[in-house]
Amino acid sequence: MNISENELKMMVLKACRGIGLPVAQAQEVAAAMAASPWALKQLLTQLAKPILTASFDFSIGLDIKNAHILRDFWACADAAYLASPRVCIRGVSSCDVTEALARYRGVSVVAQGEDLLVMVDERPMLKPARCEVAPDEWQQLETYAALTYVPETDASRLVGAGAGLTDND
């Protein structure tokens, strides 16, 4: 499927919200994916992961355990941007998604054992563009996005939106 940048962005945004990501983080993931659609397949893997309560240690920068990369990467990028001495995400490996998020936020990610270090980077941002998306991947995104939709009832259909049921005038 040939998908516009905005279609991809909106679908990823809704999918992220569908799994319970806060909206600002969902927006950033969406913008990152629009610039790096090659990471979409692995995004689906990340979307399927449970969102746990993370723990934070700020003593020498930022050290996170139980991170969900889509939710917590942004705090790491903030810390790296502010030149924190060390930003470490425990138990997360480097993948297309971490690379896409990093490129979007102007940081880099480096694997260190089973952990991921986040550092400031000077690489230029990638430019969003139209892309080809595999239909099954799009379908999976739609499934997550659908978690934000509210089923219609007869009552909501009548009062929830505008205009008349027929408009012959």
Binding site: F56, L62, D72, W74, A79
Partner: peptide, 14 residues
């Protein structure tokens, strides 16, 4: 700094 607050309470980022 606000980023530390948001790391722990990410729902307030927006």
């Amino acid at each position: 700094p606000i980023w530390q607050f948001l790391a722990q309470v990410p729902r307030h980022r927006l």
